[in-house]
Write a protein that binds this DNA or RNA. Structure first.
Length: 837
RNA sequence: GCGGGCGUGGCGGAAUGGUAGACGCCGGGGACUUAAAAUCCCCUGUCCUUUGAGACGUGCGGGUUCGAGUCCCGCCGCCCGCACCA
């Protein structure tokens, strides 16, 4: 070996260039090896890589490199989720063009990713703002339109009157726009929708097939889709109208004591008394935050109208109630106070009857309520022909009678809504449609795609630059040739990320992707990203896959076979009170002493806060580029994999990264002990090596990187202590190979120094000899009444009788037994002996 | 309210129902050195006038078992998602 120390500042760049030159990470669609598609959620080019990206991509990289070593053809691509608001905000704040800003950021961030030595196939890189990409997206959107999966509908949006734009719900804070601070208005706009609800059942059922997704994510999607089954039926109203209601508890129908509609229900809207209008206005004022809803009082307005009960004929009062939602079910309910908490509160407040129709047993039909509704199981009481039935039986019976009587039917209601994709924004995929007064909505002809964004736009005024661009929207109708206008809305950025994994797999120029080539790579074998995308992105991508399949473009069922959601990188915060304001400092500005922390600038103490997710606002961040410079890419990668299980949060620590830096050097010194021609055996070390290779492989496949790391530490210690031998050379060589997915630069450097053939990035994973996985001798625990008294060494295949005899021969055990009668001896071969007295 | 997850040393965390605390970090002691850095070695759950074949110990209380961090029942605490969804 040559150098004393491994110098990442030289080695990292050297090997990164070597990999590029050898093009060893480019996936070959023509390969006949088994494929492996490893994908991490592509980043938004916000400016710089943050530590969360580093953790995410390191995990994916270890898998990609490992699978390559196991003889798979690996697709591990990278690109940029490049449309979105921040680029427009930068344009408004700094007067730069969103495109220029975005591509500059991409250049910076690509350079940073390169510094980490990720085994990425950069030949497939693209940004979603590349006209080529969004042009194909426009074509797919038209495909969906032609297959009836796209429609336009007038719908209510949050409108910021100052920025003149639509806001997402998350951008409305306390009723005000998050940027402008202006009071947000409700406006009705014609918007584009994707028919995701058409796939509600399939999206729900598909979840059952996703065995390798976290249960948590599947449950979140299940709740989001929100399937519920019940009865829809209509009440005859005293004003002659019919009022459809939906209930999941048709069994409790005899317990209905009033009927209620939402404030924006047509019946409520049609009332012409001032009192009714005032009440409706009051309902609209109510806040929608969780806390407000929690405490909000149930309010109602008696319309004076009554509804006839379908079985008893009783006339039930019809209220407008603030807790009834217009956009779920029919916007109207039959209220059963005894068995629904909201109805209970309402009835208690307005003095309405609270009949019991479900009881623990038939004898308890008169049992009073204990101040709250009983929503649980039981038997039906006070319910005519339902009496004595279980809840399930009664539900079925009522639905049957409603259907045969022709006044109602069993229905399924979904919480899932169609996906509104219109955004009144510049920096997105232009929606490829033209509005013609004569022909209506007409798709842009495919030979005119991509329909590009105009470059000459200004952000000096608020609102959508496409709308006020002097020429862009004016065009001719492709059908009649008359004057027409382009759609000025752009697509939600979630559309861009709903099919990018297909484009990574196949990139023809004349179409979005080639179905056959996509079929070769899809589904993604391992998808890795943050839990924040558990619902929207992952659901939309699943929907697009189905939608494209329905259009005949694709034969993939689920896009992501296995999903892994990694934890966040966290760090404590440092702050000081400055009047009412909390001023935060970065870890780099602070000296962390044993107990406290002081500000480097003035030596005065700062407050140490909780360990929380790294965020710019709390300044508890470390810049990946700084730590790569200080410790090298491998130490940073190693830290990302050590200690914390990947799904949990990883607390960043200076001491931790220093430890990783030390280990890099330690391994390097160990590689230096590789002696060409060393001979002789070291059976124990050889066994340990084989066991480690098998265990590390298992751990990596289970994404238990922290455990794989621990095993590499153990074998390193053992190899360090061993004397030179052929087996020690084998241990060192194996360590090099096992560490190579995690610390590829160090591994290449060691491989070259050791005279390894080619690049270690293209080497095979070390082979395991199954015979070497079992030790000749094992340590047996000896217990007396379940308590450990002694340990002894025995041959691995010692018989039960031999083990028992050995255990009873132990002096320590005999002293513990102290002459007591032995009632039983349990022997687990290879493990333990338990003597029961 | 509904749904889910998690509680193990000073910290991050290991542990097919079978020797709890692997491995890393912090801390302590020592070696090497003129000195420092680097490196190496040892110790490091708690308790004890019993230093032991000792007692206790995986949030708390029960249970199953020869044996429970692990399985079951009941609590407590923390975290996350959804939420007036009929």
């Amino acid at each position: 070996m040559t150098a004393e120390r491994f110098d990442p500042s030289v080695a990292d760049g050297r090997w990164q260039r070597a990999w590029d030159e050898a093009r060893c990470f480019e996936a070959d669609s023509a390969s006949d090896k088994p494929k492996s598609y490893v994908l991490e959620m592509f980043p938004y080019p916000s400016g710089r890589i943050h530590i969360g990206h580093v953790r995410n991509y390191t995990m994916g990289d270890v898998l990609a490199r490992y699978h390559t070593m196991r003889g798979r053809e690996v697709l591990h691509p990278m690109g940029w989720d490049a449309f979105g608001m921040p680029a427009e905000n930068a344009a408004m704040e700094k007067g730069v063009h969103p495109g220029g800003w975005t591509y500059d950021n991409i250049a910076t961030m690509k350079g940073q990713l390169k510094q980490l030595g990720f085994a990425l196939d950069w030949s497939r890189e693209f940004a979603t703002c590349d006209p080529e990409y969004y042009g194909h997206e426009q074509a797919l959107f038209i495909d969906l339109y032609e297959n009836g999966l796209v429609y336009r509908k007038e719908s209510e949006v949050n409108w910021d009157p100052v920025d003149m734009t639509v806001l997402a719900n998350e951008q409305v804070i306390d009723g005000k726009g998050w940027r402008s601070g202006a009071d947000v208005e409700k406006r009705k706009l014609n918007q584009w929708f994707l028919k995701i609800t058409q796939f509600a059942e399939d999206l729900l059922e598909g979840l059952d097939t996703l065995k390798d997704w976290p249960q948590k994510v599947r449950l979140m999607q299940e709740n989001w889709i929100g399937k519920s089954q019940g009865l829809e039926f209509a009440f005859d109203l005293s004003n002659g109208e019919k009022l459809p209601v939906y209930t999941t508890r048709p069994d409790t129908i005899f317990g209905a004591s009033f009927v209620a509609v939402a404030a924006d229900h047509p019946i409520a809207q049609s009332l012409d008394s001032k009192a009714a209008h005032d009440f409706i206005a009051l309902c609209k004022k109510g806040g929608t935050t969780a806390a407000e809803l929690e405490t909000a009082e149930k309010l109602g307005f008696d319309t004076g109208i009554t509804a006839r009960h379908p079985f008893t004929g009783a006339e039930l009062p019809l209220y407008i109630a603030n807790f009834v939602l217009m956009d779920y079910g029919t916007g109207a309910i039959m209220a059963v106070p005894g068995h629904d908490q909201r109805d209970f509160e309402f009835a208690a407040k307005y003095g309405l009857p609270i009949p019991r129709v479900v009881a623990p047993s038939v004898d308890e039909a008169g049992k009073p309520f204990a101040g709250e509704a009983e929503a649980g199981e039981g038997v039906l009481v006070n319910s005519d022909f339902l009496d004595g039935m279980s809840v399930e039986e009664a539900k079925a019976e009522v639905i049957t009678r409603a259907e045969s009587g022709g006044w109602g039917k069993g229905t399924t209601v979904w919480r899932l809504r169609d996906w509104g994709v219109s955004r009144q924004r510049y920096w997105g995929t232009p929606i490829p449609f033209i509005h013609c007064d004569t022909c209506g909505v007409v798709p842009v002809p495919r030979d005119q795609l991509p329909m590009k964004l105009p470059e000459d736009v200004s952000f000096e005024q608020p609102g959508n630059p496409l709308l006020r661009h002097p020429t862009w929207k004016h065009t001719e109708c492709p059908k009649c040739g008359g004057k027409a206008e382009r759609e000025t809305d752009t697509l939600d950025t979630f559309v861009n990320s709903s099919w990018y994994f297909l484009r990574f797999a196949s990139q023809p120029t004349d179409k979005p992707f080639d179905a056959a080539e996509v079929a070769q790579w899809m589904p993604v074998d391992q998808y890795i990203g943050g839990i924040e995308h558990a619902i929207l992105h992952l659901l939309y991508a699943r929907f697009w896959t189905r939608a494209l399949a329905q259009c005949g473009k694709l034969e993939v069922k689920e896009p992501f076979a296995s999903l892994f959601t990694q934890g966040m990188v966290t760090h404590e915060t440092y702050s000081r009170k400055d009047g009412p304001r909390e001023v935060y400092y970065t870890p780099a500005e602070v000296d962390r002493t044993g107990e406290g922390a002081t500000l480097k600038a003035d030596g005065q103490p700062v407050q140490i806060g909780k360990v929380i997710k790294m965020s710019k606002s709390k300044k508890n961040v470390v810049d990946p580029e700084d730590i790569i410079r200080d410790y090298g890419a491998d130490a940073v990668r190693w830290f990302m994999l050590s200690d914390s299980p990947p799904e949990r949060d990883l607390p960043w620590s200076e001491a931790g990264i220093e430890g990783c830096g030390r280990f890099v050097q330690r391994l390097w010194r160990l590689f230096g002990k590789f002696e060409d021609g060393a001979s002789g055996e070291d059976k124990d070390l050889a066994r340990k090596t084989h066991q480690t290779i098998a265990a590390v492989a298992e751990d990596i496949e289970a994404l238990a990187f922290n455990k794989a790391v621990a095993r590499i530490y153990e074998l390193t210690s053992a190899a360090e202590k061993a004397k030179p031998s052929a087996d020690r050379n084998f241990a060192i060589r194996s360590l090099l190979l096992m560490a190579s997915p995690m610390m590829p630069h160090l591994a290449e450097e060691g491989w070259a120094a050791m005279g390894g053939e080619g690049l270690i990035a293209e080497a095979d994973w070390p082979k395991v000899d199954p015979a070497m996985l079992v030790d000749d001798e094992v340590t047996i625990a000896v217990q007396h009444k379940g308590k450990l008294r002694d340990t002894l060494t025995a041959p691995k295949d010692a018989s039960k009788e031999d083990l028992e005899a050995l255990a009873l021969a132990s002096e320590k055990v005999q002293r513990s037994i102290d002459g007591a009668e032995i009632r039983k001896v349990i022997v687990v071969p290879g493990r333990l002996v338990n003597i029961v007295t």
